[in-house]
């Protein structure tokens, strides 16, 4: 599905730092990627790898302070998101970029009706009057598969189940027909059957509405099922980036390969223990000068602790940040 036209979102060298009392935490380090119209980009990585912070930095949803976006560009529809004023960014959020968050149980305001919360962006961004917004809100609820939509607008969030609330969140995110939908682990808090339903819904909506989607997750299975392209993050950096088939067929970065081995197989004998990647992800107190994965990497060698690898192209549209060449089984000569 990826189009070849101009990217809807192009991020260049994004750096985000949290200035805490104990010193700076470099959460996002020189992240670059682009998003084509209509494509679904899967962002994978373990907790603390900077997946969410990258996306939140772009649209100013991080608490500042302590967060600071120190450098970078985020081109979106002729604007640089990182240079926009507060008001302009506000006008963009919810209208051109929609969000779905991880925990549907707490992401809706408990004291307002679901209808009110869906109508809010409609009235603010589309200038609709109450009646018109209510009608559209009912359509949206129907679109995300909530039966008896008209009546349910008057219900409060606690009267919905977790999966239904996530559908409501999706309805809010899609209210103004955004160009980009950012979904931050939208199925993590849901049980697997509901997860599958939400995935189906998103696939279906994508076909109907054709927006580009950034799907943040740590579940490779989900990525394999829906993504067009995959961005693997580790230690606040992009370590591998490429089309989904390519990544699953020829993972180039040791971290990506390690992630693949952690997925339990449904065939064959059951493993005694689940596979894990030994060690802890790094907390970066300064801009990395060496490969952040070296301490946990089976292939690490001298150069990895002296230099931070850049992203090297390994195939058409597929790059990785690693000095080790998996193809040849030796050092990459760059």
């Amino acid at each position: 599905m990826p189009g070849n036209g101009q990217a809807v979102l192009r991020v260049q060298d994004l750096k985000t730092v949290f200035a805490t009392r104990a010193g700076d935490i470099h959460a996002v380090n020189s992240v670059s990627f682009s998003l084509q119209p209509g494509e679904l980009l899967g962002v994978v990585g373990e907790s603390g790898s900077g997946k969410s912070v990258t996306m939140m930095s772009l649209i100013g949803l991080l608490p500042m302070p302590p967060a600071q976006v120190r450098a970078g560009e985020g081109h979106f529809g002729g604007n640089d998101l990182l240079k926009l004023g507060r008001k302009d960014l506000q006008a963009l959020r919810g209208r051109d970029i929609g969000f779905v968050f991880q925990d549907p149980m707490t992401s809706l305001n408990p004291v307002f009706t679901v209808g009110f919360q869906i109508m809010e962006p409609l009235r603010k961004h589309m200038g609709m009057d109450k009646a018109r917004a209510r009608q559209r809100a009912a359509e949206l609820l129907q679109l995300v598969g909530i039966p008896d939509a008209e009546r349910r607008l008057k219900d409060f969030p606690h009267q919905f189940s977790g999966g239904m609330r996530q559908r409501v969140m999706i309805a809010i995110a899609l209210a103004c027909d955004p160009k980009v939908l950012i979904a931050d682990e939208p199925t993590t808090a849901l049980d697997v059957t509901i997860q599958a339903q939400i995935l189906e819904l998103v696939k279906e909506l994508r076909q109907k509405l054709g927006m580009a989607i950034i799907w943040i997750t740590h579940d490779l299975g989900v990525i394999a099922g829906i993504a067009d392209r995959v961005m693997v993050m580790y230690g606040g950096q992009v370590v591998e980036y490429g089309p989904v088939r390519e990544i699953f067929a020829n993972p180039a970065h040791p971290y990506t390969r390690a992630l693949m081995t952690t997925v339990p197989s449904v065939r064959g004998a059951r493993a005694e223990k689940l596979n894990v990647i030994e060690g802890q992800p790094p907390m970066l107190s300064q801009h990395p000068t060496a490969c952040p994965f070296r301490a946990r990497c089976p292939q690490a060698f001298g150069r990895c602790s002296r230099e931070n690898p850049a992203r090297y192209t390994v195939a058409q549209g597929h790059d990785t940040a690693c000095f080790w060449d998996h193809e040849t089984g030796g050092e990459r000569h760059v």
Partner: peptide, 26 residues
């Protein structure tokens, strides 16, 4: 610091609406 406040901001609501409507009401 509740999640619903982030949702309200993500919808593009102004700070005044976020704080004086969503947060204050709760």
């Amino acid at each position: 610091n509740q999640d619903y406040v982030r949702t309200a901001r993500a919808k593009g609501l102004g700070e005044q609406t976020v704080v004086l409507l969503h947060v204050l009401r709760n």
